[in-house]
Design a protein around this nucleic acid. Structure first.
Lengths: 337, 337
DNA sequence: TTGTAAGCGTTATCAT
DNA sequence: ATGATAACGCTTACAA
């Protein structure tokens, strides 16, 4: 391995000087600079970031913690994070938790041991244990597509309540009065409960009837959830003309079932999704849905994190990014009687 | 920051002894072990992996280089890699190249500087510059879903030629004689050329006619490619009864266009895809396709990499994993006349 | 079983 | 503008 020492030897100067030219810190002449650079080139010298990190206390690495379930979402989020990181000369260590608490803690510990400069915690409910540990290790963090109820931690997300409210109101605006919902877990404070609340409130504000049987709760927003739960919903609620699905994957599942049951979408049944993942344009009919600006969210979270790292100031921003309704072909206008 | 030194102080012993119990290396009594562990707990000591790495010359992290295009594939591949890595106490740094040569080289350089223990290079053609650099830095590497023509580098992939051949033969077996193809770039030696070759050979071996107009070349295997290229294909080749699409995303695009043009699938037009990504079950009709065992491929590549790292032996295995035809609803049997 | 001390490859603090 | 030299937090001879 060729070190700064070898370079110094070849350039006939000291390691201190070599370090200076490498880091472009004052204290060398143009002449020595040339000699050093020449030597580096000839020796194919490459910095040892490990050694550098040990003394500077900076690794230029961040950790990104993601669950696996919402696999389609993860990718775009990561894309945004990665793009800014790369241009800022940061590397990213990805940690898949599979929503497993033990694994999450293990990863948090690893990130601490590897001395990452910051952490982005994505899409998942934070447990008290998580938060306690995060506070203890004192590494800059930003929450992405999630937030913490009890403790103030900076986050970027879209307002799930408002987005769901808007989705249901959109359906109502198209003349629908009998609207069912495919939801996630109501105990999930991030993407479960708020979306259910948005649905209920929108109905209520428009004086539409609601009862418990009109929401079918899924496990993990998955295609399979949608596929099976829509049949229960159909049984519970035969007058239903429209469905609000809390994820595109579930919506796709519902559509698949509809095809099987020869239920025409949107003629007989309208459906609006949530996420605007790539799949939503690939299903038939293309899915009208709520768009989350995933790439921007990732990018913004990274921006906030780097700000914390660079300025060493603990910001406590709470950033809500705007959602958008993407109109495609899965919702039909109903004439009001 | 609490160091090994603080622990030694509190436990009233030396840093060497503390190091021994941390790494469980012989040379301490049960009694001191207790004292040290007690001190560590009280002080919330956590290893500084950076310092450790500097002396052991081991970082317990690997780099994974992925392009971005085939986004849906990337995820499953990463999943397999990550799962084994986590259980082996390795972290992974992800590098998205966007198939950009400059970016790839930058990342390779970063990985070297960060002293990763190994690299998995995924889904992308290796340039001479890439290979030259890889050879130079002398870090264990395995190629995943790609391979290098000129130089021997261990890889794991499925045999694209055979898989394509099988796909087309499957269509032929169902009675199809007029088969078109939606392909990737023929200059792409990894997923482009071999799949085209498989198509041509299968036709030839079954004495079926072929001409250049029956293959439409796409840019990046994308939904949009399929969406637009299928119309050209339909124009060029009106007698066509079946399509072999070199990716599921393109197949989904073709299906979307078929819906728009009121072409019934599979009644009027059969289609077989390639990849078996999640989307293939979400489209209507569900897509018959070639499955690549992505998770296993990732897992296997990681296994090979760790073997190289641990045993310090340069293996040169070339692993082909088996593909599978997943039969769904997009191919119809045609009665031969 | 234990401690002292010499590294690992850098950056940083002094002198000069 | 330059060069010794002391850190950084660990592991690992080598002694004791």
């Amino acid at each position: 391995m060729v070190t700064i020492r070898d370079v110094a030897l070849k350039a006939q100067t000291s390691i201190a000087t070599v370090s200076r030219v490498i880091n472009n810190k004052p204290g060398f002449s143009e002449e020595t600079k040339q000699k050093v650079q020449q030597a580096m080139k000839e020796l194919d010298y490459e910095t040892n970031e490990i050694a550098r990190s040990l003394i500077t206390n900076k690794t230029n690495t961040i950790g990104v913690i993601v669950p696996n379930i919402a696999s389609m979402l993860t990718h775009d989020l990561l894309n945004g994070i990665e793009n800014l990181s790369q241009s800022r000369k940061y590397s990213i260590i990805v940690c898949y938790t599979y929503s497993n608490q033990e694994r999450t803690m293990e990863y948090l510990k690893t990130l601490k041991e590897k001395r990452v400069d910051g952490i982005i915690f994505t899409s998942e409910n934070l447990t008290d244990e998580n938060i306690k540990y995060i506070k203890k290790i004192n590494i800059p963090i930003v929450l992405l597509s999630t937030f913490s109820e009890k403790y103030k931690l900076p986050f970027v997300k879209v307002d799930d309540y408002q987005a769901s409210y808007a989705a249901v109101e959109y359906l109502i605006g198209k003349g629908h009065k009998n609207i069912g919902m495919l939801s996630g877990d109501p105990n999930d404070k991030i993407s479960g409960e708020p979306r259910i609340r948005g649905y209920k409130e929108a109905l209520k504000d428009h004086h539409l009837f609601y009862n418990e049987e009109r929401i079918i709760v899924g496990n993990n927003f998955s295609f399979e959830d949608g596929r099976s739960n829509v049949v229960t919903l159909l049984e519970n609620f035969p007058e239903m003309t429209a469905i609000f699905s809390a994820s595109d994957e579930m919506a796709a599942g519902a559509i698949a079932t509809a095809h099987e049951k020869k239920i025409n979408i949107p003629e007989e049944l309208s459906i609006i999704g949530y996420d605007n993942i790539l799949v939503s344009q690939m299903v038939y009919p293309p899915l009208t849905t709520i768009e989350q600006p995933l790439y921007d969210m990732g990018y913004t979270a990274a921006e906030m994190l780097f700000h914390q790292i660079d300025e060493k100031e603990l910001i406590n921003k709470e950033v809500y990014l705007p959602f958008k309704i993407i109109e495609r072909k899965s919702v039909k206008v109903i004439d009001s009687l």
